[in-house]
């Protein structure tokens, strides 16, 4: 437990160093843990745009999946509708929330099981041609839903 937390801390440091070149900052990223036979999962995060221009997330590639797509999940009169989208716009000086029941990065064709507590990596490509590679933890969908303040340190 302590070791994985240390790893998480280190990877956070590593990703902040990478982020120094990009106007996009990424917070609270995680991938949902799935049972071993599950072929797909989703990644969630907060994307923050520190620049004065709108920037879009236009593509993603995960280490653990054959295909990685950008999706949204809309609730229309009580019916959940998942749809593929071309981009996720992060407004200038604003943010985009990828969270359960909405925008997400869809990982399709998993080549390994994703167990809670592990780390995995995800490359994100933005409309300003910048790329960011993040290390993100595998979490249960419930712990991912917890507000940030709930995690005890």
């Amino acid at each position: 437990m302590r070791f994985s937390r240390m790893l998480a801390g280190l990877s956070l440091l590593a990703s902040s160093t990478l982020l120094a070149q990009s106007p996009i900052e990424i917070e609270e990223a995680y991938v949902r843990a799935v049972p071993p036979t599950q072929a797909n999962t989703a990644a969630f995060m907060r994307l923050i745009n520190t620049s004065d221009q709108d920037i879009s997330l236009v593509a993603a590639q995960a280490e653990v999946s054959a295909v990685t797509e950008l999706h949204t999940h809309l609730e229309v009169e009580g019916v959940m509708q998942m749809r593929q989208i071309d981009q996720i716009i992060i407004p200038a000086q604003g943010q985009a929330e990828l969270r359960p029941g909405g925008l997400h990065v869809m990982l399709i064709g998993l080549n390994k099981a994703l167990t809670e507590g592990e780390m995995t990596s995800l490359q994100l490509r933005f409309s300003d041609d910048s790329n960011i590679e993040i290390a993100l933890p595998v979490k249960s969908v419930m712990s991912g839903m917890m507000p940030h303040g709930h995690h005890k340190h």
Binding site: R32, G101, G102
Partner: peptide, 9 residues
């Protein structure tokens, strides 16, 4: 099971 979020949630 291909449901990304609300089903597992």
């Amino acid at each position: 099971t291909y449901c990304p979020d609300v089903c597992p949630l």
